[in-house]
Simulated scan of single mutants.
Amino acid sequence: MTHEVKLNELTELLESASYPLSADAMRSQFDDVTLVYADGSEPLAAVLDRIGSDQFDSAEDAQTSIFNVVPVEGVGEPGQSEGEG
């Protein structure tokens, strides 16, 4: 059964793991997780495949690495800004 996780819920998920954690171990531990984007979804394993790291030292390290490879379109509405409005 697939476990769907929104990007704003990723921190809680990653904090449930023990670190340091290899990328392979993370794939195995979260093999049923699908990240839900603003415009679709993607298996977490596919996201991890795009990350160059072999190991994550903390949940924050893993989250930063994941956010760096998540498609920009998946984060919010096109043209949406959190800046001045």
Rank of each mutant, 00 (worst) to 15 (best):
M1V: 04
T2Y: 14
T2P: 11
T2V: 14
T2C: 11
T2S: 14
H3R: 12
V5W: 03
K6S: 14
N8C: 05
N8K: 12
E9G: 09
E9N: 15
E9M: 08
L10P: 02
E12Q: 10
L13E: 11
L14C: 04
L14I: 02
L14S: 03
E15I: 01
E15G: 02
S16T: 14
A17D: 05
A17L: 09
Y19M: 02
Y19I: 04
P20L: 05
L21P: 00
L21K: 07
L21A: 08
L21M: 08
L21W: 03
S22R: 10
A23Y: 06
A25P: 01
A25E: 13
A25M: 09
R27K: 15
Q29H: 06
Q29L: 10
F30R: 01
D32T: 14
D32W: 05
V33G: 13
V33T: 14
T34K: 15
L35D: 12
Y37G: 05
A38Q: 08
D39K: 02
G40D: 05
G40P: 04
G40Y: 11
S41G: 14
E42L: 08
E42A: 11
P43V: 10
P43M: 14
L44C: 09
L44M: 11
A45H: 07
V47F: 11
L48E: 03
R50W: 07
R50P: 01
I51K: 08
I51H: 12
I51S: 08
D54M: 06
D54I: 10
D54S: 15
F56Y: 12
D57I: 03
S58P: 03
S58E: 05
S58N: 03
E60Y: 05
D61E: 03
A62W: 04
Q63S: 12
T64G: 10
T64S: 11
T64F: 02
T64E: 11
S65N: 11
S65R: 04
S65W: 06
I66N: 07
F67E: 13
F67W: 07
N68D: 15
V69T: 13
V70Y: 04
V70G: 08
P71W: 01
P71T: 01
P71L: 02
P71K: 08
V72N: 09
E73G: 14
E73S: 15
G74P: 03
G74W: 09
V75I: 15
V75H: 12
V75K: 08
E77Q: 10
E77C: 01
G79Q: 06
G79F: 04
G79S: 06
Q80S: 09
S81E: 01
S81G: 07
S81T: 06
E82Y: 02
G85N: 02
G85M: 00
